[in-house]
Amino acid sequence: MSPQPRWTKSTLIFGGAALWGAVLVGCVMVNRTMLAPPAIPGAALVGNKQCAECHEEQTARASSATHAKVALAQDPKLGPTSCEACHGPGSLHVKAGGSKGTIINPQKNSETCFSCHLDKRGTFMLSNSHQVLNGKMSCGDCHDPHEGNALKGSGASIENEIETCTKCHTAQKGPFVFVHNAMKEGCTACHNPHGSVNAKMLLARDANLCLRCHLQTTSTNGTIFAGGEDHRTRLQGGTCWIAGCHETIHGSYSSKPLRY
């Protein structure tokens, strides 16, 4: 009878530690640094002035940027609003005359943004999200970190917030003969552009999405009033924008109740 190997807690701990130790000792024989991407092994910080010499376009109005108001963890000697907080240390980039691959470009790899916006990595991992993680889009397609409010079109910007979305989603842009006034609240009133568990990145997949603004309360028990009518039995079939009901939810040419 041959002894059977047993996977005990101690076996796993000590075996794993031995393996890990072998990796630690063995790997240091090679002079190469492994860092979680994006990273620039071997580079050092140079400071904002160096960046401005070549990238005047990006730095000219950077002081007005949302990100300039936010202290970012960097070398205190270089100040808290360094370009290098997002683009990584720039010494190799400067030494190479600005060549590609020697500096982090968040436009190509949003991991830089996720280092502070941790939650966005989680939402972009959802199946209903913009394709940022696979590189088909980047955070910079909708946000401008170099000037003004990173949320394009917010506040007193010359453009409107909704334009951030409708430059690609032109069918939802309008103008419409009968517009859904929620459009003035912005697309984010109903969608989470970073991702949602719900189809089409909706904040909610059911009638709660609409009732937040359209609920009417009466003294009658067991009713769900909206638009002057009890919708309870209709909601048994499905939710508000389902077939035959309020299909043209962004706006309509022909139906004021946004039916078609």
Partner: peptide, 19 residues
């Protein structure tokens, strides 16, 4: 996201819960 549940009461509470 909660709107009308559970205060709608009656059969309405079978139709819509919080999202």
């Amino acid at each position: 996201i909660g709107t009308v549940y559970p205060r709608a009461g009656g059969a309405a509470n079978d139709v819509l819960h919080n999202a």
